[in-house]
């Protein structure tokens, strides 16, 4: 039996009168790809925000790798090996693509702060090669010297994916990684993510695109109105009438 890398334990969160998350109890097993699906406003992104320390839950806790991470600073959670790829691409628009990927690589190597003001960035060969390797994997190597601001939305997503992967996270949280991508790019992203499954990286993925969910996920959790309404293997969930009612039927 694999260990639970991430355990979201009895988490509640309300915004004013709105119950965004209630009674969420979720375990993500080591090495699996765990999809979280649900209609808009179901609380999927809030759940991810709780996991990375952006939002504090009202009650309950998030345990990563045996340690409670609720209440920790976002950078501390990242340094533990939890990396998030955002829904709207969060990149460094004024830096080149190469530097965009080198920055997280430095975070991985040097920790949350280091006064390395007398090193020369362009001589950091190991970091640069690592960054170039990931840019190649997401298909952005040729544009590595351009500014990230000039990228299309889909390319920004792929850049952010490279920024996450360069840190070799233990747990990668992906918020709709293929939204805004062409079918072709979506498929290459799926292939890329599959590669990491083979290498044993644990992933939580929020996705609307059922094609992506069913090609990647080992387990699917369905959220609706802040509650878990189903949890199981992809085929079980697909056949579940409650899910079809709440989500698959309604949205598609």
């Amino acid at each position: 039996m694999a260990n639970a890398v991430l355990h979201v334990a009895d988490v509640h969160k309300s915004f004013g009168g709105l119950r965004a998350l209630s009674d969420i109890d979720l375990q993500v097993m080591e090495g699996t790809t765990h999809a979280i699906i649900g209609p808009n406003g179901a609380g999927k992104s809030t759940l991810l925000n709780v996991c990375i320390g952006r939002i504090a839950p009202d009650t309950g806790a998030v345990v990563f790798d045996g340690q409670v991470i609720t209440g920790k600073q976002p950078h501390e959670i990242n340094q533990m090996g939890v990396v998030r790829v955002f829904q709207t691409p969060e990149i460094f628009p004024d830096l080149s693509l190469l530097h965009n990927v080198m920055v997280p690589a430095f975070a991985k190597r040097d920790g949350s702060f280091r006064l390395n003001a007398l090193q020369v960035t362009s001589r950091q060969t190991a970091i640069r090669e690592e960054a170039e390797h990931w840019l190649e994997d997401v298909g952005l190597y040729k544009q590595r010297e351009t500014l990230a601001a000039s990228l299309s939305r889909g390319d920004k997503r792929r850049l952010e994916l490279a920024m996450g992967l360069v840190q070799h996270p233990r747990l990668l949280l992906l918020d709709e990684p293929t939204a805004g991508m062409s079918r072709h790019d979506t498929n290459s992203t799926i292939d890329l993510l599959r590669k990491f499954k083979e290498r044993g990286m644990t992933k939580v993925i929020i996705e609307h695109d059922m094609h992506v969910v069913f090609s990647l996920a080992d387990r699917v959790t369905v959220l609706a109105q802040g509650r878990i309404i189903a949890d199981g293997k992809p085929d079980e969930v697909r056949g579940n009438p409650v899910v079809q009612e709440a989500y698959l039927g309604g949205a598609h």
């Binding site: 976002p74 969060e90 920055v103 975070a107 007398l118 840190q167």
Partner: peptide
């Protein structure tokens, strides 16, 4: 230097820096 690069990254997107582990 890498330090200078981090400063520019902070200018570019400070929130992102925290979720990048800085």
């Amino acid at each position: 230097s890498p330090f200078g690069m981090m400063l520019k990254a902070i200018k570019s997107n400070q929130t992102r820096m925290a979720y990048t582990g800085f």
